[in-house]
Write a protein that binds this DNA or RNA. Structure first.
Lengths: 209, 209
DNA sequence: ATTTATCTTGACCGATTGGTCAGGTCGGGC
DNA sequence: GCCCGACCTGACCAATCGGTCAAGATAAAT
């Protein structure tokens, strides 16, 4: 077995175990929410005794906090895709593609984010008010510039962003529903098809194509 | 006080109390999810002793089931708005308006639906496979007819529906996020603005305007 | 080899949970 | 006026939860 216990330098143990626990926690929190998740289930999934979880993460809330913040950072990094081009069709198109790829790669993370926000965002409220808010206003200004240049129609930049978030995250958060209506989980072709469909409607909707 | 105990005919007591409990349960389930909600909190919000809840609803799961099914029925009824016109701009526009109005009127219901689907839809899986599936296929056929008649562009009807669901429900499920970015909860004007923005982009996106 | 700090873990605890139940109250049919 | 079934509820229970702890194992520093 490739995952048999290797010698493991002391300094790597913490990093490896924290990653293992965070991965298990993300899945369990996504499936059951904060209240429905139990430390025991997370421990079992990680293959560690429960007491060991509390050695690395003091409380269930600390563990949850780390999971949510991890997701937020991945989220933000992908947002840079919008800056690849001065052409709105390319820039916004790249952002939609990046978000769709993230929904496929990290569906559990997207769900935990959903749980958190639905719950009133007790953990990441400060991030919403600072980081996300300034990011959003920057992009709104950028889109408004495109409108002023006549590159796209005079739509509402704010609600365009919300539509991109809503739509792309829908394929992660409501993946069970789309899979059921599809008769099975999405494959490569279906993800590609969904991405193109979303891009097509949104880009035409703002007059970028 | 208008909500003081009225004589209350025997037959109405059950109906009134069930409604009271369901209303409280919807809010608590929306705020905490199934696992995070407690019967005690629901009872307190309903102003009834906990044991009384178990008189009307045998288990927490039964109560949750009723809440989810109530939402699903409201959901389906509003879906008829799409049939108001043979003109795609009017039909789809009316559907978007109806869904946005529902997001505003029943944000808690929308959240409980979100929790349920994210959780793998254990309670309404059969509804997804039967009722929602056939409804979806009917609308896809209708949209395909519009495409065949040249009334709209040849977009993917299925993903258009997903985009409508995702976007409209986003304003309920992620209402805390949009409110935070907005600097406060949405008022009449802001809901109107959001509805118009969504309609504008989606209808132009499919070539209906 | 001994020390030291990190890591591991079974056993345990107080608190909370969903659910039960016996013993009430109360309204309406007779 | 009496009685039956619907309605109400405080007290209680077994199960499970997050979290603790003390004792042991292990790897690096001396």
């Amino acid at each position: 077995m490739s995952d048999a216990k290797t010698p493991a330098k002391r300094s790597e143990i913490r990093q490896a175990n924290e990653a293992l626990i965070l991965q298990a926690a993300e899945k369990v929190f996504a499936e059951a929410g904060f209240g429905g998740a139990t430390m025991q289930v997370i421990a079992d999934l990680a293959g560690l005794p429960k007491a060991n979880l509390h050695y690395y993460f003091a409380t269930k809330e600390d563990l949850y906090r780390r999971v949510v913040r991890n997701i937020f950072e991945i989220w933000l990094k992908a947002a840079e895709a919008m800056d690849v081009s001065d052409d709105p069709a390319l820039g916004i198109g790249a952002y939609i593609e990046a978000k769709m790829a993230l929904s496929r790669a990290h569906p559990d993370g997207s769900k935990v984010w959903g749980f958190e926000v639905m719950h009133g965002a007790p953990v990441i409220q400060d991030y919403l008010e600072t980081t996300l808010r300034s990011w959003t206003e920057d992009r709104i200004a950028r889109i408004e510039a495109w409108i002023a240049e006549g590159k796209i129609k005079p739509i509402s930049p704010r609600h365009l962003l919300y539509m991109i978030w809503a739509t792309t995250q829908h394929y992660a958060d409501f993946g069970h529903q789309t899979a059921t209506l599809n008769g099975g989980a999405y494959g490569d072709a279906e993800w590609q098809e969904a991405t193109e469909a979303v891009k097509s409607i949104l880009l035409r909707g703002i007059g970028a194509i």
